[in-house]
Nucleic acid binder design. Structure first.
Length: 820
RNA sequence: GCGGACGUGGCGGAAUUGGCAGACGCACUGGAUUUAGGUUCCAGCGGGGAAACCCGUGGGGGUUCAACUCCCCCCGUCCGCACCA
């Protein structure tokens, strides 16, 4: 048969149409006796178009999904849409198009592109978070949290843009100004917000990281540990002079408390209002606003004396109370005791304002610093001095004793503080899940009864981008009788943070149409935990902490048995174009459609897997993609012109030639390499390189191969390419007269005996430098190797006139002759 | 400032356990095919040198028969955290 040109469009459209008509092609079976494998890529925001950055993520997951199917697993590989969010509202303002319409159109478009890329998703399980059938379960979970005290309302300081008249998320504050009004400084404003008490799970979120150490990148776990920020210390109450109230401070170094020379409050600390005079108050206000729009790193320390004093409960000493901008309200108690002799920040501050410095810790092998000549804080542990009954103790011992003493006397105790804060989930937005709460003038906050869910997001809403909470203006939505007393009441007008949508979506894939529960617990028990989760490292903190939290909450509700959502996490690198991350503003985005039109889906997939290992950033180049295209064309042409000859193979044909043996060896070496890459580190770049080598060898040996070997080579080649280039693999499978789909064929087993070289190549070095090489049978005795090496002409030349001091022999590998 | 990762040809990258540095691809050069261009096929391709050979994995030192790989110091790039008491 003459070879056929590689026409990627004709091949891909042929199979695209066939596969389109098989909605169950990649169906996952929740009642299978096969071992399960759940591979998941993070669900995308439906921005409107798939680009080559998305494609990388999905190509990695899809290669794995296809491979695992071929290895006999029952694979769940689903896809969905993170469909709520601000861009839909912005688009609505810009195009006068309803967010729902815009979102749905984008989903249709992106889903078409996904299918065209031949990603093997079970589309029967598709979810979209903006549909009431999904978000009603957000509301249901919210009610469950409310019942358990995990959802609550309180005042909070938030970023507020006076120009937009709305709250901004932290990510929407750029250099202290609004992202849409670059000259408008963001203000800090107090508002009543809904919070989720994720801090109740802080200890578990930290300790369960142990369960993830084998399967999650160390980098992500470190980021999570830092984010949670557990810190053990002591809470101590300082009495307020001339007042019944107390100031509670948190310290990790209670052993230094005899060195405390002032107490400092955060500007937002509730006591500041009471303690400070009017003049101080204005200054404090300015401090708060100044901090709102400055990089914390280059903020100068600034403080004010309140004029009041507090009493150190350990020694009864009277110390001044200050307010300073470097104390943050969100951590600990929002108040500290300053020990300038033993804390760098306190040292800097007290030096600046002339507050006394009193050393109370000396190095184990040194003297106590002099309070006058002291040049820097001594922050290490040491021996406690000048500290009453605790003098002479080591820091660690003193901490224990002081905690006990404080407990006995009732002015303090050991305490654990977290950097992790409760999760503020209220958003003054339209396009999100309505918070299922009702505000009644008689009963206060009343949850929507479970049977009234979902609280459906109304569609007829004016979105102007001005003013907060668009829902507040929709009377038909807002006005509702109180479920408790029937009085006319108002609904909550805020919607939920979209991170809630993505905190549990992967469970919904188990049972996406369930109208009576978020999902069937049996199905979840079968599929969970996720065997492999794949996504960008930018989600290392928020999404992945929220997801871990939600899983623990669902476990406590009895819905799931697993502590953690995913056993393994893989974070792939970014796709870079022209030296920069792809973005609309840089105009360097390549859409999936452009890429498919020019190169085809297979080429795009192969190039993105070949050009770099998946965890590293990848440079997209058209020239590189052309190389991948050439490779697929080379395979295709070789197969089409040799298929007939291969298929004519007779059982027990002619005895194998030297070329036959070499090709079979290379084939099994290649198969071993590809299999190992799938099973270990996913360096598909080296898998594909090895397949390319094999194809190069096939070209070189083409005329000398027997039909039987040719057939084995071609079939195995197609099977190995299936996870990477499913279209052309399917087409070639058909050309070989086989029935597909290829991903249902078993993955071929490599034969270690066939992969083994016939003879070992022995490298001969002189003083570590390569000088000669020779062939020797495997297992040749070391003495023989040494003799052969020494007898080699080149070696004789190299060592001539010098004395052989030592010979190192590594069996089957190397002889190193050391001469002087 | 603290913590982490990384640094290999013109480019992307390979070398998995200390054992041939540069697999594979791109770019480039030459040849074959072609009226020509393109495609395809074959070959060359770290630097120096006519060659023997020498040099070479950010820089400097060390361990070792042997170092891209291990150890120490320095430089650079990227990422994370950054008054967290």
């Amino acid at each position: 048969m003459p070879e056929k040109p590689y026409d990627h469009k004709q091949i891909e459209l042929k199979w695209f149409e066939r596969w389109q008509n098989q909605p169950d092609l990649y169906k996952a079976d929740s009642n299978s006796s096969l071992p399960k494998y759940y591979v998941l890529e993070m669900l995308p925001y439906p921005s409107g178009t798939l680009h080559i950055g998305h494609i990388r993520n999905y190509s990695i997951g899809d290669a794995l999904a296809r491979y695992k199917r071929m290895r006999g697993f029952n694979v769940l590989h689903p896809m969905g849409w993170d469909a709520f969010g601000l861009p839909a509202e912005n688009a609505a303002i810009a195009n006068r198009r309803h967010p729902r319409e815009w979102t749905r159109a984008n989903i249709d478009e992106m889903k078409r592109q996904h299918r065209r890329m031949a990603f093997s998703y079970d589309w029967n399980r598709e979810i979209s978070t903006c549909e009431p059938g999904y978000y009603r379960w957000n509301q249901w979970f919210f009610l469950k949290m409310y019942e358990r005290g995990l959802a609550y309302r309180r005042q909070a300081l938030l970023n507020w843009c006076p120009n937009c008249a709305t709250v901004l998320a932290n990510e929407q504050v750029v250099d202290g100004c609004c992202w849409r009004h670059e000259t408008t400084p963001v203000e800090q404003r107090e508002m009543v917000q809904w919070f989720i008490r994720i801090t109740r799970y802080a200890d578990q979120l930290l300790s369960d990281i142990k369960q993830l150490e084998d399967g999650w990148p160390e980098r992500v776990l470190t980021m999570q540990r830092n984010w949670i920020g557990r810190s053990e210390g002591t809470e101590v109450d300082f009495a307020l002079e001339g007042d019944q109230r107390k100031i509670r401070v948190f310290t990790t170094r209670v052993d230094t408390i005899y060195g405390a020379t002032c107490v400092i409050l955060a500007p937002e600390h509730p006591l500041v209002t009471d303690l400070a005079t009017a003049g101080v108050h204005a200054e404090v206000r300015r401090m708060i606003d100044a901090r709102g729009h400055k990089d914390p790193g280059d903020l100068e320390k600034e403080g004010l004396f309140t004029g009041r004093y507090a009493i150190n409960p350990f020694n009864g000493e009277r110390v001044p109370i200050w307010v300073a901008n470097f104390i943050v309200m969100g951590y600990g108690t929002g108040a500290i005791m300053a020990v300038p002799a033993h804390d760098e920040r306190d040292f800097e501050f007290c030096k600046q304002y002339g507050i006394p410095i009193r050393p109370v810790i000396r190095p184990v092998d040194g003297d106590l610093a002099d309070p006058v000549t002291i040049r820097e804080a001594f922050a290490d542990y040491g021996i406690v001095e000048n500290s009453g009954q605790f003098s002479g103790l080591a820091s660690a011992e003193a901490r224990l004793r002081m905690n006990e003493a404080a407990g006995r006397a009732g002015f303090g105790s050991a305490a654990v503080t977290f950097r992790l804060k409760d999760w503020g989930v209220s958003r003054q937005r339209y396009w999100g899940t309505p918070i299922p709460m009702i505000h009644c003038p008689c009963c206060g906050v009343v949850p929507v009864p479970e049977e009234d869910l979902p609280v459906v997001l109304p569609l007829d809403v004016a979105i102007t981008g001005q003013g907060s909470s668009p829902l507040a203006a929709v009377d038909a939505f807002m006005n509702v009788p109180c479920p408790k007393c029937g009085t006319a009441a108002r609904r909550e007008s805020d919607t939920m943070d979209t991170f809630i949508d993505s905190s549990w979506y992967f469970y919904r894939y188990c049972d996406p149409d369930n109208a009576g529960a978020p999902f069937d617990t049996q199905s979840a028990a079968y599929w969970f935990p996720i065997d492999q989760y794949i996504g960008g490292v930018e989600h290392a903190i928020l999404h992945l902490i929220y997801s871990r939290f939600w899983t623990k909450f669902m476990r406590d509700l009895g819905l799931v048995a697993n502590d953690e959502p995913a056993t393994r996490l893989f974070t792939q690198g970014m796709v870079i174009k022209d030296g920069a991350k792809m973005s609309k503003s840089k105009g360097n985005v390549i859409s999936a459609d452009q890429m498919i039109e020019r190169f085809g889906a297979d080429t795009g997939r192969v190039f993105e897997l070949f050009a770099a290992p998946p965890e590293k950033d990848l440079d997209w180049t058209d020239a590189g993609a052309e190389g991948a295209y050439r490779f697929l064309g080379r395979v295709y042409r070789f197969l089409t012109r040799n298929a007939d000859r291969a298929l004519a193979a007779q059982p027990g044909g002619a005895s194998p030639s030297e070329s036959d043996r070499r090709i079979r060896r290379k084939l099994h070496q290649t198969l071993r390499k590809v299999t190992e890459d799938f099973e270990t580190r996913w360096h598909f770049n080296t898998s594909i390189a090895k397949i390319m080598e094999f194809v190069n060898d096939l070209y070189a040996a083409e005329a000398d191969l027997s039909p039987a070997v040719l057939l084995e080579a071609l079939e195995t080649l197609v099977l190995m390419l299936e996870p990477f280039a499913p279209y052309v693999a399917e087409e070639m499978w058909e050309q070989l007269g086989r029935t597909g789909p290829v991903f249902r064929q078993p993955w071929p087993a490599f034969d270690a005996g066939l992969a083994r070289e016939e003879e070992a190549e022995i490298v001969v070095q002189v003083n570590g430098k390569l000088r000669a090489r020779f062939q020797a049978p495997f297992g040749t005795p070391q003495a023989t190797l040494e003799t052969t090496a020494l007898g080699n002409d080149k070696i004789q030349q190299a060592i001539e006139g010098r004395r052989v001091a030592k010979v190192v022999v590594v069996p089957d590998k190397l002889v190193n002759i050391v001469v002087r």
